[in-house]
Simulated scan of single mutants.
Amino acid sequence: MRVFVAGGAGVLGRRLVPQLLARGHQVTATTTSAAKLDLLERQGADAVVMNGLDAGSVARAVADARPDVIVHQMTGISLTHGGKPDLKHFDRWSVPTIRLRTEGTDHLLAAAEDNGVAHFVAQGYANWNGIRQGGWVKTEEDPLDLHEGTAAHTSMVALRHVEEVVGKAGGAVMRYGAFYGPSATDDQVELVRKRQFPLVGRGTGYASWIHLDDAASATVLAVEQQARGVFNIVDDEPAPASQWLPYLAACAGAKPPMRIPTWLARPLAGKVVVVMMTEGRGFSNAKAKRELGWELRYPSWRQGFREGLA
């Protein structure tokens, strides 16, 4: 198939494009930077500069590529677009990504309709943001938490927009867990090694992780099978921060993380961080494994952390 990967030079796009090419697909991959065209071309893709927030730029790129499927992997969380991660001011730091998940998604869907593109796959998110009711592990049947009253609310509303409009278009939304793998966790590991990534409270909040290569392989399956609906693309082991953070520190050769009480973390790090680390809900991957036939290379973050930081 002819596959159009919007955001092909991003942290996941760089793992996805080679997998699509290896399966015999023709890939057009976009980047916002002309300096990254050569990177995509060396992988074997047709590379194009595109501004996902410019409807005209998106329309031209899609029309020229004439794809059978569009894969939306555009985010603004890189240092270039979003600056250093700032979870205390999540709403400010996330503005580039929020716009790409609202305006950018709408531009791509409009271009898909104008050019008769048969299928659409978009990036979603399933890490700690499951509804904070009931058990600690959520399925696709459980709603995402909109986190009203926190700085994460605008980001969660943007995620809901992606799921609603892509669902109406008959596409698939891949709710990826927290990425790890090449270049995905460098900032976090640096903080862990400096002992600047503490456990909050008892660290009871759950998270779900996914290696970039496994996220890419699930996406390839969704493309090839013209999957529809929402899929949690996470590993087999959702876990509380009290488990994964000390293990990450050990794999990184760092001292165990410090622990700070929630009352102190709230003014220092913000309410979003406190919720993540004390109330977050993880996710189940049973649907993706069952319906897509997805097999993980890294079924647990334990294996992935250990191999990636050895």
Score class of each variant (00 low, 15 high):
E224C: 02
R175A: 00
G181Q: 13
Y176R: 05
V230D: 08
V189W: 09
Y176I: 00
V165F: 01
Y180C: 07
R175E: 00
P256A: 00
Y206E: 09
Y206N: 08
N232G: 09
P238A: 10
D186A: 14
E237C: 09
K194F: 01
V173S: 02
G253D: 03
E163W: 06
G170I: 09
W209C: 01
V192F: 01
E163K: 11
D213Y: 01
A252V: 01
V165D: 07
M174G: 00
A178E: 13
V192T: 08
D236Y: 12
Y180K: 11
R195A: 03
D186V: 13
D236L: 10
H211C: 03
R202W: 03
V234M: 06
Q226Y: 00
V166A: 04
A178Q: 15
R175W: 00
A172N: 05
A222W: 12
V166H: 07
A249D: 01
E164F: 00
K255W: 00
R228D: 03
Q188D: 09
Y206A: 04
Y206P: 02
E224N: 08
Q243N: 07
C251Q: 13
T219R: 10
V162Y: 05
P246L: 06
V173N: 05
S208E: 11
L212Q: 14
A172D: 02
P240G: 02
Q243T: 06
Q196C: 06
R228L: 01
G170Y: 09
A239G: 05
D235I: 10
A222S: 13
V192L: 05
D187V: 14
P182I: 07
F179K: 07
N232Q: 14
L199P: 07
G201S: 06
Y180L: 12
N232F: 11
A241T: 15
A239Q: 11
V220C: 12
L245Q: 07
